[in-house]
Design a binder for these strands. Structure first.
Length: 470
DNA sequence: ATGTCC
């Protein structure tokens, strides 16, 4: 029987220092046996200065640095609302980009797939540490920080249509490269155009199921078609920007009279010197992340050219899931200027929203939700605009990296994936075990809960055929 | 997530 919104919504009433309630969208199956630490994080966020409506958590929620991953929190800028790096995450503007490939799965046999995966593994730098597709000068890096994916397309890597299908058209206009520290620049300079490690990956997939035919057609996806999905972020640059900002805010917070229940929730008013500096550096990091995905998408096109004889790969969408954005939303009957933190959560604009490009206005914003390695990726569309128009970002981790390493043997895992017909090109065996499906929640249940809650609608399910991992 | 501890 179909579940109602109430069936998947849990409220933690405002008590103690909480300014608003906690609202968690999840079924029992998506919560850990002992959710105490997770609920404590949702409650802690509800105490932040200026928070409005609720401390929300999406169905893929799990414990993170200060804020839960899967958390959505909006603060009222005019009423002392804060910005917190812990509410954005270390991998600033980490996100997912899917391209529709010019081939049907039935046209690609095992040998052709293996050739494509070899070409992709060769073309796209993956794994931790330095080494990227681009070799930017200091001036190039500054331009990427200021202009994002737009700078990459302007230099000839990609087409204008790529930007039409990239969140914010690939460029955050509040970015100030001058607010990105020297150490962050140094790390970023050596990594532009690289996947990284952890749960970051590049997959070749087949569209296995279309749930919403109209939206799938608008998004450029058809049953049986191949797709490529890129999951990565701002690498060491964003990580360093986050680290630097947490240090500054821990020290500055007291001067604004702010106390928080957890040091990891370090924050300052959005409208303060330190708040403005962080937002400018965060947006520059977001530009770096989108430029990174644009460069990798071009390398995917090159690999397709080599393996298929066609470079034609059409953007479905590029959505990010680690950002704080200034947005206007109606709260208690009045439209307000909010700073919306989405950490392990995405924007999901409903159909008809004025910020959507005309071609997407009829169906809503695309959202791409990668499952764990070897499991499905879902393409969704914004639905009712709940929780400041947000939805989930992935399967959500169930076991820590350490637990996963302990429980899962990499060779057994690799064999299992091979038996499923998934071609794996992995750099690190222990890294592979950390990303095993057993370490994650069931992504099908995550998106089903999003749909029941009215956060987003299911459009298409993509099954992996090959994966490149750090 | 991360030059997985300066």
């Amino acid at each position: 029987m179909a579940r109602s919104s109430d069936d998947v919504t849990r409220t933690l009433p405002a008590e103690g220092d909480m300014a608003v309630p906690g609202v968690i969208f999840a079924s029992q199956a998506l919560l850990p046996e002992d959710p105490a630490a997770l609920f404590a994080q949702v409650r802690n966020v509800a105490t932040l200065p200026g928070i409005v409506e609720a401390s929300y958590a999406m169905p893929d929620l799990h414990v993170g640095y200060g804020f839960p991953i899967g958390g959505v929190a909006a603060t009222d800028v005019a009423r002392g609302g804060v910005v917190s790096p812990g509410g954005v995450g270390f991998d600033i503007s980490c996100g997912v980009r899917t391209l529709a490939l010019p081939a049907l799965a039935e046209e690609v046999d095992g040998r052709a797939l293996a050739a494509l995966m070899d070409a992709l593994a060769e073309a796209v730098p993956h794994g931790t540490g330095p080494g990227g597709l681009a070799r930017p000068s200091e001036a190039d890096l500054t331009r990427v920080l200021a202009e994002g994916a737009e700078a990459i397309v302007a230099d000839g890597a990609g087409v204008a249509a790529d930007l039409d299908r990239t969140e914010d058209r690939g460029r955050l206009t509040g970015a100030d490269p001058g607010e990105v520290g020297a150490k962050a620049r140094k790390r970023g300079k050596a990594q532009l155009g690289s996947l990284g490690g952890g749960n970051h990956f590049l997959e070749v997939q087949v569209v296995e199921e279309v749930v919403d035919a109209e939206a799938a057609e608008v998004f450029g996806l058809a049953r049986g078609q191949l797709a490529a999905t890129i999951h990565c972020g701002s690498r060491g640059l964003g990580h360093q920007v986050c680290t630097d900002a947490v240090g500054v805010m821990r020290e500055a917070m007291g001067r604004y009279g702010i106390t928080v229940p957890d040091a990891q929730l370090a924050c300052v008013p959005v409208d303060s010197a330190q708040g403005r500096a962080y937002v400018a550096a965060m947006e520059a990091s977001a530009n770096y992340a989108r430029a990174n995905r644009q460069l990798i998408a071009e390398a995917v096109r090159d690999a397709c050219g080599k393996a298929f004889g066609s470079r034609e790969a059409v953007m479905v969408y590029d959505v990010n899931h680690n950002m704080a954005k200034r947005e206007r939303h109606v709260v208690d009957g009045t439209e307000r200027d909010l700073c919306v933190h989405r950490k392990g959560a995405t924007l999901a604009l409903p159909a008809g929203h004025p910020d959507l490009p005309a071609e997407l206005a009829g169906v809503g914003q695309p959202v791409i939700v990668p499952g764990s390695m070897g499991t499905a990726t879902w393409v969704l569309a914004g639905d009712r605009g709940r929780a400041f128009a947000s939805t989930c970002h992935g399967a959500g981790r169930l076991r820590s990296r350490k637990q996963a390493r302990k429980r899962i043997a990499p060779d057994v895992l690799a064999r299992g994936l091979a038996e499923q017909g998934v071609e794996v090109r992995a750099k690190s065996a222990s890294g592979l075990a950390e990303e095993a499906p057993e370490a994650y929640k069931d992504v099908d249940e995550v998106v089903a809960v999003c749909e029941a809650a009215g956060l987003s609608r299911r459009v298409a399910r993509l099954r992996p055929l090959g994966v490149v991992k750090g």
